[in-house]
């Protein structure tokens, strides 16, 4: 079983003669120096990862970290400089223009930060655009577009024009447009960054709901850590075009790969993300413990009442195996401090 998206040693260098930068010591130079010496900008440097079917994979990084370039390389909206990209095992970089168009038309859809809606078309015709260029008949594409608008909660707005809708509604149109072609993969390029915080939260909930309903593979780009933690099954952290860490939200918070990631996740409430396995300790020899154990995958916050109410340490189990114990001494630092904790 191959992964839905595979990216191997992907490079994108902007500027004259970009190949000479790939994989050489030039790439290790700081940005300003690379630009001064070659006139090039290395936006994506040797990035590899794989996204499994049905997974929500988040790529997170600050502006200028290369995340938007990365996502555009996947369907070659930006032509990569070198490396391999596979969608369902098929190498994207070897596709001819026709095959590439087929990929974009049927298998991979994208949602953009600035929506990219067509101002001269009604909402319905915007959603139907992808089907229209495939040659789907008018009645059929309007039926399907109507369904998609209902799915994103925009029924009744079919005949309006994009400029008459709020930002959040426009992005729902963008989402419906992407869903209309029934792709296996949805790419989101900072889709909610231009929206108000409250609307952003609504839209995140919408994406979670849709993911549960339609079960697509999602690749989500964001600069917002909270968004990444909320949505992502796994998160990849990108800095200056390089992958710093790939892992679950728990991995990132509990075991940041370097100071950059640690700095990033410093303000995350640890008790909401980490599970007991990050704070449990080995039982002292001959220590008496509670009878009822807690599973190691319990989020710390959910264990608070039990642990604080217990007189003795509570055993932590992974399946049937006892892996450690936890008591208030372990719990409290996780609740009050954001210091890095080395797993026991």
């Amino acid at each position: 079983m191959t992964s839905t998206i595979t990216v191997e040693h992907l490079w994108k260098v902007f500027g004259p003669k970009p190949e000479r930068v790939v994989g050489t010591e030039l790439a290790a130079l700081p940005r300003a120096e690379l630009r001064a010496r070659t006139g090039c900008l290395a936006a994506v440097k040797d990035v590899s990862f794989a996204v499994e079917a049905g997974e929500v994979f988040v790529v997170m990084g600050l502006s200028g970290s290369g995340k938007s370039t990365l996502v555009r390389c996947l369907t070659r909206l930006i032509e990569p400089t070198s490396g391999e990209i596979g969608i369902d095992g098929e190498p994207v970089r070897e596709m001819n223009p026709r095959r590439l168009r087929e990929l974009r038309r049927h298998r991979v859809a994208m949602v953009f930060q600035h929506f990219g809606l067509l101002p001269h078309r009604s909402v319905l015709d915007n959603v139907a655009y992808g089907l229209e260029i495939q040659g789907v008949g008018r009645a059929e594409r309007h039926r399907r577009a109507g369904e998609m608008l209902a799915l994103v909660g925009l029924d009744g707005h079919e005949q309006q024009y994009p400029e008459q809708l709020s930002g959040g509604m426009q992005q729902r149109v963008g989402l419906a447009r992407a869903l209309a072609i029934d792709p296996a993969v949805l790419l989101f390029d900072e889709p909610f960054s231009a929206l108000d915080p409250l609307i952003r939260r609504d839209m995140q909930a919408e994406v979670r709901r849709l993911h549960a309903e339609v079960g697509k593979t999602l690749l989500f780009i964001t600069h917002d850590l909270a968004e990444a933690l909320t949505l992502g099954d796994r998160i990849a952290v990108l800095r200056d075009g390089e992958l710093v860490q790939v892992g679950t939200p728990e991995d990132l918070v509990g075991d940041p790969a370097d100071d950059y990631v640690a700095d990033f996740v410093r303000d995350v409430p640890r008790s909401d993300v980490l599970t007991l396995k990050w704070i449990m300790r080995d039982p002292a020899p001959g220590e008496t413990v509670e009878d009822q154990p807690l599973p190691a995958a319990t989020v710390i916050r959910d264990a608070i009442p039990r642990v604080l109410g217990a007189k003795l340490p509570i055993p932590v189990v992974d399946g049937d195996r006892r892996v450690g114990v936890v008591d208030a001494d372990q719990l409290l630092p996780a609740l009050i401090g954001h210091h890095r904790q080395v797993p026991v």
Binding site: L77, M110, F112, L118, H120, I133, Q134
Partner: peptide, 27 residues
Amino acid sequence: VPVTTVEAATALGSTGRQLLTKVRLPL
């Protein structure tokens, strides 16, 4: 014509001609 609009239409698999007649010229 906004780059983002053209990009979105490209990402949906528009051909060059479709980009011209359905996106660039109308806009």
